[in-house]
Structure formats: C-alpha cells, structure tokens
Amino acid sequence: MAKSRSRKKEDELSVFDPSAHELVPKHEKLSDKEAKAFLEKYHATMKELPKIYINEPALRPLSVKAGDIIRITRKSRTAGETVFYRGVVDE
C-alpha cells in the first residue's frame, strides 16, 4: 500500500466534504464574542484546549484561522448529545 500520510499534502480528495459522514459530528466556529465568553467561563487559555489542525478535512467547509475555537456537537453514548471544544492550531 503506497499511500502518503503527510498531513500537508494536498490532493484531489481535498475537495471532498466529510461533514456528511456519520463519523463526523457537527463542527461550528465560535464568534469572537462567544469565544471570549467561553474562555472566561472555563478559566481556560487557548493553549489548554484540545487541538484541531487548521487543514483538517472536517474544517474545510468553515473558514477558520489559527486561534479560533471550534464547537463540536457530538452524539454521546452516555448523555445523548455533548458539546466539545477544540482550539485551531496551525501545525
């Protein structure tokens, strides 16, 4: 199997939108105001958040920059639906 696992390498599949896939939960970008309120609420800094790379397949439909916060609404097996946050980083 000759396949490239480089995160940076672009190919034809980079137009494919994975957000319709059942494995991929809903990703939303927080507005600046929401992001500020979120960080304040949890007394957190960007560095402490779980990360998501800027060239993630799931972020393709959104226009994001490093430092944004992504709200992920997951289907949870224990609580029905849960919200998770990730901070965008560039590599």
Partner: peptide
C-alpha cells in the same frame, strides 16, 4: 490514520 486523513480527528475518535 486513513480515517484521520479523510474525515478528520473527530471521526478518528468515534
């Protein structure tokens, strides 16, 4: 790793 490349990190978790 293939799932990560095609669908992203949240898909990998699931």
């Amino acid at each position: 790793y293939e799932v990560e490349e095609v669908f992203g990190i949240e898909a990998v978790r699931e």
